[in-house]
Computed example of a mutant assay.
Amino acid sequence: MSPETLDTFLSGENGMHFIDAGTTTCSDLLAGKLDVLLVHAQLGEHASRDTALTELARAFDMPRWFGHNWDALEDCLTDLEWLPEQPIVLCLIGALDDVADRDTLLDIVQSACRYWQDAQRKFHVLMDLRLKHDND
């Protein structure tokens, strides 16, 4: 992703963009973007649902009431009151073993993007190509 493409992505509507994590890093892409809160979640090569939820809880510094399930993740991603009020870029690197879990995670992240778009807060996601839906 070129710097121009990244700037266009970040200034546009909230959404997801897939990156080749083997050739670039989110930190490199966002270098110099001081107004953005980078939330980096490293899922690993073959993450389970539990591993993904634990890593996202760590990355977002989720509150203690986070229930470590998909519903709780969606609740937290549409709350975020414990984080500073600034644009957020979630960087999801790795892959989930289970296709249904991957699809659920992508649906939740996409839902969070829409929620924050309606709330007029920037929430963008840079995702590893290995998380891409087969029909994207």
Rank of each mutant, 00 (worst) to 15 (best):
H124T: 10
M127P: 01
L90G: 02
I88E: 00
T5V: 06
L6K: 03
G12W: 00
H68S: 14
T8I: 13
S11V: 09
H17Y: 03
L131H: 10
R121I: 07
W70S: 11
H40K: 14
E13V: 08
A119F: 00
V125M: 04
D35V: 04
A41M: 08
H124V: 12
L30A: 06
D136K: 12
L77R: 02
E13M: 05
L29V: 00
T51K: 01
T54Y: 05
S48W: 13
D20L: 14
L53G: 02
L73N: 00
F123A: 02
S111Q: 14
P3N: 12
R102Q: 15
H46R: 15
N69D: 15
E55C: 10
L126G: 01
N69W: 00
L73T: 08
A57E: 15
S2P: 02
R102C: 03
L37A: 07
L37N: 04
G32C: 08
D103E: 15
D61E: 14
L96W: 09
H124Y: 04
R58A: 01
R130W: 01
K122N: 07
T5P: 12
T51I: 13
T51G: 08
N69P: 06
M127E: 06
D134F: 08
D136S: 14
A119E: 13
A119D: 07
E13H: 07
P87I: 08
L43K: 11
G67H: 01
D35M: 07
W70F: 02
L106H: 09
V39A: 01
V109A: 04
D118Y: 00
F66D: 06
S27D: 10
I93A: 14
Q86R: 11
R121N: 05
R102G: 02
T24H: 06
R130N: 12
C113H: 11
G22F: 08
D28A: 15
T25D: 05
S111Y: 07
G94N: 00
C76G: 02
G32D: 05
K132N: 00
A72Q: 07
S48V: 10
N14A: 00
G12T: 13
L73I: 09
R49C: 14
D61A: 15
L56Y: 02
L6G: 12
E4F: 03
Q110A: 15
L34C: 09
R114S: 07
L73S: 05
H46E: 15
L34I: 01
A21L: 01
N69A: 07
L83N: 04
C91Q: 00
A52Q: 03
D50S: 07
F123C: 02
I108K: 11
G15M: 02
H133R: 15
L43W: 08
G22A: 10
L77I: 01
R114G: 04
T51M: 05
E85R: 13
L53E: 05
F60T: 12
D98R: 12
L80P: 06
S27Q: 06
V39C: 14
T23E: 06
D61H: 11
F60V: 04
E55S: 11
Q120A: 14
W116N: 09
F9M: 10
T25L: 09
D28H: 01
P3Q: 06
F18T: 05
V39L: 15
R121C: 03
C91R: 02
E74C: 11
C76W: 09
